[in-house]
Nucleic acid binder design. Structure first.
Length: 710
DNA sequence: CCGGAAATAT
DNA sequence: TATATTTCCG
């Protein structure tokens, strides 16, 4: 049986895990296995829930029929003798009750099916106390429609609105007023955003899903970005659902072309029925195309290359099959360059490179001159990233840092801040500038990273003292994996030192001894990934009120600690499913579905939740009284804050993650479960549960191509 | 090659 | 709407 401990090996208090508002809520447990039923019930009671048990689905249904309002959640075994699995689930969902399914069968498909059909969570038996840690969250979850319904709804929705991403999309915009280049040219397919290189009419392909570089299965779409998934919609031939890095789900069939010209007229065609725009059409519009060349090439030539329109037009308007062929031809100059999404991993590499470079020379107020795009790119060893992109990222990174510096106030700085020469870290911890982060809700000026739900968040992990090395490591890692906040410091102690993954611990030591830290050599291959930033931030972990930091200053955190990050897929299960347990990806993929708890919309969302949840309505005082001194406290702090009057650091972290978990919607996990075996946005990153393994992987990734300067 | 900033996509 | 990313430009 499971240990009744949390991931850090600390005892956890059951009563502190469940927010007061959820105390005593009624759960209906249905399991034909009496022993398991009773055991589960007793565990739930330990979490202060009221539990009703029954062994029969029919009884459960009748109970609900009569007292539906009483129950906030149903936990049911998947294999009930008196009813069909999914039928039961559907009946429950019809009653608008969140359902958690459980099974002793270790079958990923089963779990996937459950989730696909609308269960909000799947519990793998045997269930232990800790598995139930976040059960309460599901009571507030909006009932989710079964996957197919969602899909169909989306399809219909998109078809009814001109916004369909399928088919050929013709968008016309005015570009005439800009750009010195004259003439109309066709934009290369790869570009989907950014300043236009040319004016006039542009044809480009849109809505091609990006995918991990190592994606090999599936059909359609290319791309290099790691955060998108592609899946085949059930029973819909040639139609794909794409979840872009921002979490928007799109479906399309076939090829899409976007025309941009000066009229701001958008026409949408379905390629399946209407086919592609003809070359003739384009000619009529006086289109010119140009060969796709990348920036560097342009620069070298010092001149843009324009290409004969006829050739290019036809090239840009290939049919599905043609496109597929073209993609297969990787050597083709027409290869697309999709919009890069700075996934956590990518950012991790980036920050690693920056810090490695930055470790060589230290300037207190400006960036290390070595931290230039080119060396960074080299160190990153990411073939799919261009110099431009790195430069761009660096630019934003710097601006981010600058912003933080500008908004910094000594009020928030730790008293015992290091007096070392590193006191002016060029990459200050966000926690040291809480004012910058304590922005009003919804204000995300400092968030960095994925648009939409993937916020790169403040280093909440830093608010934790580091009694548990593993927890620190995990926190750092997870926060980075799930976010992209330009927080340089955080990533650093993730990095394994050379050959010994255990040296991660050393770095953690450095966290606690930062003032005395002695700087080692700075080569990327050296044993020292810790830099000023790391040192800078450390004191903050130990000082002051942790809860204040987390609640007052970091209202928007979407930070997750690993063991808490799996309300939908337990670590076990994710292994079983061969799925990385980065639950936050669900958010990335399904911001819409996760909306009720989306951190981006915490204000409204919380309000909405309050409006529709009895519990929340009935105990508003409790929600805010938890931290009366916190003026900036907002409704969404409820989950994170109120139950932790005097939280231990671990609990603070947990509460933050609780909040985060609430953000989760599982619809998108289905993509993992059902059809996305190839999914691997981490580029073969191992399970973060295996720290050593992960560190080794990271090391390899980071060091793989870097040469030893010595 | 770089950084700042415009411009656009999302 | 705000943000992320691309592209321009000196």
């Amino acid at each position: 049986m499971c240990l009744k401990m949390d991931g850090n090996g600390m005892n956890f208090s059951v009563t502190k895990i469940v927010p007061k508002a959820a105390n005593g809520l009624h759960i209906l447990v249905v399991d034909n296995d009496t022993v398991s039923l009773m055991y589960l019930a007793s565990m739930l009671e330990q979490y202060s829930f009221k539990v009703t048990t029954t062994e029969l689905a029919s009884v459960a249904l009748s109970i609900l029929r009569e007292q539906k309002e009483q129950y906030k959640l149903v936990i049911a075994n998947m294999n009930l003798p008196d009813i069909d699995n999914l039928a039961f689930l559907h009946l429950l969902l019809k009653k608008d009750i969140p359902v958690i399914l459980m099974s002793s069968e270790r079958n990923g498909n089963l779990a996937g099916k459950a989730l696909a059909q609308g269960a909000c969570y799947f519990l793998q038996k045997p269930i232990c106390l800790e598995d139930l840690k976040f059960v309460w969250q599901h009571m507030y979850r909006k009932i989710r429609k079964p996957m197919k319904e969602v899909c169909e709804a989306n399809i219909e929705n998109k078809m009814n609105h001109g916004n369909d991403s399928r088919g050929i999309k013709i968008k016309e915009t005015d570009n005439v007023s800009r750009a010195p280049e004259k003439g109309n040219m066709i934009k290369e397919p790869g570009g989907v955003s950014g300043r236009p290189r040319c004016q006039g009419i542009i044809i480009k392909e849109v809505n091609h899903a990006t995918r991990p570089p190592n994606y090999e299965g599936g059909k359609e779409v290319g791309g290099v970005s790691g955060s998108a998934t592609v899946c085949n919609l059930d029973g819909i031939q040639n139609r794909y659902m794409v979840t872009d890095p921002n979490g928007k789900k799109k479906q399309f069939e076939g090829h899409q072309v976007s025309l941009v010209n000066e009229n701001h007229v958008k026409v949408v065609q379905n390629s399946c029925t209407k086919g592609s725009i003809t070359t003739e059409q384009k000619k009529q519009e006086g289109l010119k195309t140009r060969r796709q060349i990348d920036d560097e090439e342009q620069q070298q030539q010092g001149k843009r290359t324009k290409v004969n329109s006829e050739q290019k037009s036809s090239q840009s308007l290939k049919t599905n099959e043609e496109e597929g062929e073209r993609k297969d031809d990787s050597s083709s100059s027409n290869e697309k360059r999709s919009r890069v999404v700075w996934s956590p991993e990518l950012h991790l590499k980036f920050t690693a490179a920056v810090s490695a470079l930055g470790d060589k020379t230290v300037s207190s107020l400006s960036f290390d001159p070595e931290a230039r795009p080119k060396p960074i790119l080299e160190l990153m060893n990411s073939p799919n990233i261009t110099l431009r992109q790195v430069a761009s990222h660096l630019q934003k990174y710097k601006s981010q840092v600058q912003k933080i510096n500008e908004t910094s106030t000594t009020d928030f700085l730790p008293v015992s801040k290091s007096t070392s020469s590193y006191s002016k870290a060029e990459f200050p911890s966000l926690l040291e500038r809480p004012s910058a982060l304590a922005s009003p809700l919804g204000q995300r000026s400092l968030s960095f990273g994925g648009r939409g739900s993937t916020q790169f968040t403040a280093p909440k992990s830093l608010a934790q003292p580091g009694p548990s090395l593993s927890s620190v490591i995990n926190n750092h890692r997870t926060s980075n994996l799930n976010s992209g906040q330009m927080d340089i410091s955080r990533t650093l102690n993730l990095y394994p030192t050379n050959n010994n993954s255990n040296e991660v611990h050393i770095e953690n030591h450095s966290m606690l001894q930062r003032s005395n830290q002695i700087r080692k050599t700075s080569s990327f291959n050296s044993n020292n990934f810790v830099n000023e930033n790391m040192k800078e931030i450390q004191p903050y972990q130990i000082q002051g009120s942790v809860s204040q930091v987390s609640e007052t200053n970091l209202p928007n955190l979407s930070y997750v600690i690993p063991e808490a990050a799996s309300p939908c897929i337990s670590a076990d299960m994710s292994q079983l499913l061969n799925v990385p347990p980065y639950v936050n990806h669900a958010q990335e993929f399904a911001p819409d579905l996760a909306a009720p708890f989306n951190s981006q919309n915490q204000n409204q969302l919380s309000a909405g939740a309050m409006g529709r949840t009895d519990v929340l309505q009935s105990q508003p005082a409790q929600m805010t009284l938890g931290n009366a001194t916190n003026i900036e406290k907002s409704p969404n702090d409820f989950f994170g804050g109120s139950q932790n009057v005097d939280p231990t650091p671990e609990q603070v972290a947990a509460s933050g993650s609780n909040q985060n978990q609430s953000l989760l919607d599982y619809a998108n996990l289905l993509k993992f479960l059902e059809d996305d075996l190839e999914y691997n946005c981490l580029d073969s990153a191992p399970d973060i549960g295996d720290i050593d393994h992960y560190c080794k992987w990271l090391e390899q990734t980071l060091h793989g191509k870097s040469k030893d300067p010595q």
